[in-house]
Each structure stands twice: as structure tokens, then as C-alpha cells.
């Protein structure tokens, strides 16, 4: 079972002066249990790509299949959409109910489940994203802090128990601690729910930390697709399209410039820590 995109093309405002090609011949298979990081510049097509995954945008040509369901078919689309939980950028901007609990329940309620199950799932979602149900359930979502709002919005999608959790820049605009908490929560969610995670991010370091597979987009195309090691072993290609490198890579590069032999596949901070410690003969 998988999300499959086959030769997907998409253009915004086709036929007007503002035509903009967002996706070009994108083919991609995302399997269960993967953690896929998607990186690329603003306007490289990342957000358009993830919006295709649950059928909210329909490709101009090509196909999107979710667990065998063709998302171009209006009747079965709903079933496919329920499998793919899509968390947009700044998801706290979509909160609207009087209480946090009601807002988290919005998606589940639209699935037409019985009340007891809705309640059970909402409580579970609260605890999965680390919000105290007793403390927050009856509050207005507009009273929450930025990080809490973000977690509440995430809970609304989690409660729908998606098989594929798709997140568009889930850490954007948060302070450093907030970023860390959300990324850790996402990694924990993957464990707890056993779902696949597809995460769009600008932060090389975050993508490197969490992903089992990385996709690099440029100008509406997929230009690289592989394990983190495979992607970062080809650093030249990333620099070619002007994407930054993770901090560890920059350091490894600086060490190499100064004649220290750092293997090409050593660039995670922990690996560098061990490597430098050995070089300097530091005790464990």
C-alpha cells in the first residue's frame, strides 16, 4: 500500500497572463512507514506536491493513487482523503471553534463517527501531541500560545488517524524550543501511530535529523530522491540549486579545507563529535 503519483503536472492560473507551472512530470511512490523529508526553495513546487497527495488539488495530467484509490474519482476520493492527513503551513490559522476540544473534533465529526468514539479519539489526540486535556479542552483556541495552537491544529488531524501524515513546514515561525518540541512530537507520532510521515521543511538540519528518505525539488521537478546519506554525498548538486547545507556538512567541509581527512559520509553532528574526539585523542 502506498501513495503513488504518476507523471503529475500542475499549472496555476492556466491560460492567463499569470500562468505558473508548479509541477512538471512528477512521479513518486511513498510507502507505509517511511519518513520522507521534502526540501527545495520557495516556489519549487513542494506545497503544490503535498496538496496533491490528498486530492485537494487535482493534477492537470497524470494520476494520484492512494492505497489503490484513484483520487481523480469524485466518489472514492473521500475515502482516500481520510487516509491522508494534511497539515498545512501555519495550521493554527484554521482554528475556528469555540473550544479547543470542539476544534480538534471537527475533522473526526466530519467522518460521521459515533459521539463516544469522537470523544475517545479527541482525548487520545490531545495526549499524542502533548496537550493536557483537562487544562485545554474547554479553552478558546484563540487564548493559546503559538506553540500550543500549532499542537491543537496537529491534534485535529491526528484524531482522524491518518495512515499518511503530510506536514507542510510544521515548524515555521516557532521559537527554537517550540521547533524542537514539534519535531520531537512528529517523530513520536510516527512511532505511536505507525503512519508514514511526509514533511516539507526549509531546515536541512531538521530534515536530516528525522528523515529516512529525502526528496529535493527544484522548479517543479524532483531532482534528487534517496536516503539522507545518498543526498548529502552529492552536496555539489544541492549547492548547484542554491540550497544550504546542514551545519555538520559545512563543518566537515571546513575541516577538509584545512587538510583533515573527513570521510564523505561523516556529517551528522554526533558522528563529527566522535570523529574529532578521535582525531584530538580525547578520552571517552
Amino acid at each position: 500500500m502506498a501513495i503513488e503519483l504518476m507523471d503529475v503536472n500542475y499549472t496555476y492560473m492556466e491560460g492567463t497572463a499569470f500562468e505558473h507551472e508548479a509541477l512538471r512530470d512528477v512521479s513518486l511512490t511513498i510507502r507505509e512507514n517511511e519518513f520522507v523529508g521534502i526540501i527545495g526553495h520557495t516556489g519549487s513546487g513542494k506545497s503544490t506536491l503535498v496538496t496533491h497527495m490528498n486530492g485537494i488539488l487535482q493534477p492537470l495530467s497524470g494520476k494520484v493513487i492512494v492505497d489503490g484509490i484513484d483520487m481523480s474519482d469524485k466518489r472514492s476520493r473521500k475515502e482516500g482523503r481520510a487516509k491522508v492527513g494534511l497539515v498545512f503551513q501555519y495550521p493554527e490559522h484554521q482554528l475556528f471553534e469555540e473550544t479547543v476540544a470542539k476544534d480538534v473534533a471537527f475533522g473526526v465529526r466530519n467522518m460521521g463517527l459515533p459521539e463516544e468514539e469522537i470523544d475517545e479519539r479527541v482525548r487520545e489526540a490531545f495526549s499524542l501531541v502533548g496537550l493536557d486535556y483537562e487544562k485545554f479542552a474547554e479553552k478558546s483556541p484563540f487564548e493559546l500560545s503559538g506553540g500550543e495552537k500549532r499542537r491543537a491544529a496537529l491534534a485535529g488531524i491526528i484524531a482522524m488517524r491518518p495512515k499518511y501524515l503530510v506536514l507542510d513546514e510544521p515548524m515555521a515561525g516557532l521559537d527554537p524550543l517550540g521547533r524542537k518540541v514539534i519535531l520531537d512530537t512528529i517523530m513520536k507520532l510516527k512511532q505511536a501511530l505507525g503512519c508514514a510521515v511526509i514533511m516539507v521543511s526549509h531546515s536541512m538540519d531538521d530534515v536530516l535529523k528525522a528523515s529516512t528518505r529525502i526528496i529535493v525539488m527544484n522548479k517543479g521537478r524532483i531532482v534528487m530522491d534517496g536516503t539522507p546519506k545518498e543526498i548529502f554525498m552529492n552536496a555539489e548538486k544541492l549547492l548547484e540549486i542554491n540550497l544550504g547545507l546542514p551545519q555538520g556538512m559545512i563543518l566537515a567541509d571546513e575541516l577538509r579545507k584545512r587538510g583533515i581527512e573527513v570521510k564523505k559520509d561523516v556529517f551528522m553532528m554526533d558522528e563529527l563529535f566522535e570523529f574529532i574526539s578521535r582525531q584530538l585523542g580525547l578520552a571517552n
Binding site: G85, L86, Q89, Q94
Partner: peptide
């Protein structure tokens, strides 16, 4: 447009 898509993703009709 963004809000509509976000609510669609939560099963709004």
C-alpha cells in the same frame, strides 16, 4: 484559498 484547503483536509464539505 488556503483556509478552504485546510478545512477540506479536515473533511469539510
Amino acid at each position: 484559498d488556503r483556509i478552504m484547503k485546510a478545512q477540506l483536509a479536515r473533511g469539510a464539505d
